[in-house]
Amino acid sequence: MTYVFQFGDVWRSIDELLWGGLLTIELSLGGLLFGLALAVLSAYARMTWPRVATPVVGAYVEAIRNTPLLVQVFLIFFGLPALGVRLSADQAALFALSVNFGAYATEILRSGLESVPAGQVEAGLALGLKRWQVFVKVEMFQAMRVVFPALSSQFILLLLGSSIVSAIAAREMTAAANDVQSRTFRSFEVYLVVTAFYFVIATVFSTMLEAVDRLVFRRQDRPREVS
């Protein structure tokens, strides 16, 4: 049997796929934003109340990093309503992606913060900065410099992992592809096109993140290289 590829049905549904792609990007950026906020909060909490926050943050990180995202998505989407919290599929997806990315970002940020020499903090305090100012301007900035590449690749994993939320029918690109394939039965063609879209989106984002890394964090390296 020879198979005839037919992309006609896919092109006719291209709008639907592209709108799905937009939601994929929105979900990923949302997950990045809220996840980073969670990570910074975790880091700050661990610094301010180490005795309480260290075990709590540790449990959060370990629980998320050692269970699949798909199960986390199911727990949030099906489990939370049982506790009286009702979320739409899109909201549950954003929530799950944020909590998931937050755990990885917390761990990455921790390693970055540990790499900032204690003398830097002491110098900041000696200059009369408040503790939180030292945290933001000295510790966070230097830590971000160290961990930016790791955070970038974790973000790409988040972007690709967001296809998993199609399992609860959040309306992102994979879910759109599922819809199109159930209407047209052109499964292989639809998924091939969508895979190519993911590839393009992931490549564009990693190129952009590399540029940001060079412009924001590596600029100070240049004079040092010259001397």
């Binding site: 790409i156 199609s166 998924y191 969508v194 895979t195 993911y198």
Partner: peptide, 20 residues
Amino acid sequence: QNTPLLMQLFLVYFGVNIVG
């Protein structure tokens, strides 16, 4: 590394069916 694992699974699953 730049495409979702889920898409890779779908493509294998449906791709092999295509070959008959």
